[in-house]
Amino acid sequence: MSLLLIVEQLLNGIQLGVMLFLVSSGLTLVFGVMGLINLAHGSLYMVGAFAAAYVASITGSFLAGIAASVVVAGLVGVLVECTVMRKLYARDHLDQVLATFALILIFSEGTRLIFGSFPLYLSIPDYLSGPVTLPGGINYSLYRLVLIVVGLCIAVALHLLISKTRLGIQIRAGESDREMIAALGVNISKLYTVIFAIGAALAGLSGALVGAIQSVQVGMGEPVLIIAFVVVVIGGIGSIKGTFYAAILVGLVDTLGGYLLPISFISLFGPEAHETGATIASMLVYILMALVLLFKPAGLYGASQ
């Protein structure tokens, strides 16, 4: 088992973690502040990826595609919040689940109608392609390294937004007592729209960045949504700090487990045990969630901790 390969998988895990954070942070903001279960959040991830791929294909600019993913996903988020979500805030969680599941179907079929059933491809620009040599002689993808840096920068910016700005104070206050901040003159409807737009833009950005290393296709947001919910539960609902640590942890467990477990099972039990190791590796994230909830039912940084 090569040390260089383990370090490479470690970096891959961090890269997956920061991308999961971009998706999950919006989800935890929406649920923590608004109390809204939004199953359509993964569809906004898909919208961002398709917007980036389409704009990049007609302009020839990767950066224009990335900018389009943020703008389009954010605007779609505002549209969805103003037309659908506002009617769900006072409803119970079952109504929210049913309504946002319907949005998944609408987004999926609408995207298929516009772009067709075949995947789109977002090419990595030449200045971000190829490997870069890290200390220790490790060759690693430059684009994946850029994803790590961009994700960490956005995490810092989001932390500063929540902890140091007036909007952040309103978001934290809204999480604790939305009736009180409404009584103090804060426009709750506007605040909810801004929060939803930020979450949608972050999901769209993540979809675009990941879309460059995967195909952009209908339904790509649903698997990500499942893992994002796991991240939110592990980190603690409403906690950006918890979401960040949980996303990195999930990324590392998923990536390293998927690499190390099959190899370990082959070494211990022979080649026929590879499938067993791979199956257990696919369950590791959910096992991790179960263990965290067993000892910390509110998550790592949940409100009751």
Score class of each variant (00 low, 15 high):
His274Cys: 02
Ile181Pro: 05
Ser267Asp: 05
Gly204Cys: 05
Pro271Ile: 03
Leu291Met: 13
Leu294Gln: 07
Ile181Asn: 05
Phe269Ile: 07
Asn187Cys: 07
Val218Tyr: 13
Phe265Asn: 07
Pro297Val: 00
Ser206Ile: 00
Leu291Gly: 11
Val186Ile: 11
Gly168Trp: 01
Arg166His: 13
Gly277Trp: 02
Leu284Gly: 11
Thr243Met: 07
Leu202Thr: 00
Gly174Ala: 05
Ala197Leu: 06
Ile263Val: 09
Tyr259Lys: 12
Asn187Ala: 06
Asn187His: 10
Gly204Lys: 04
Leu202Asp: 00
Val210Trp: 09
Ile198Ser: 00
Gln214Cys: 10
Val231His: 02
Gly199Cys: 02
Ala298Trp: 09
Leu252Arg: 05
Leu293Trp: 04
Leu167Val: 00
Gly204Asn: 08
Arg178Gln: 14
His274Phe: 14
Ser176Phe: 11
Ala203Val: 00
Arg172Asn: 03
His274Ala: 11
Gly270Tyr: 08
Asn187Ser: 12
Gly257Tyr: 13
Gly251Cys: 06
Ile248Leu: 15
Leu291Thr: 04
Val231Cys: 07
Val231Thr: 02
Phe269Val: 06
Gly174Phe: 03
Leu288Val: 08
Gln217Gly: 14
Tyr245Arg: 00
Ile266Trp: 09
Leu291Gln: 05
Val232Lys: 03
Met283Gln: 10
Ile195Asn: 00
Leu191Asp: 05
Gly219Phe: 15
Leu291Val: 07
Val210Ile: 12
Gly219Tyr: 14
Leu300Trp: 13
His274Tyr: 13
Ile171Glu: 01
Lys190Met: 13
Gly258Cys: 06
Arg178Lys: 15
Ala197His: 01
Leu256Glu: 10
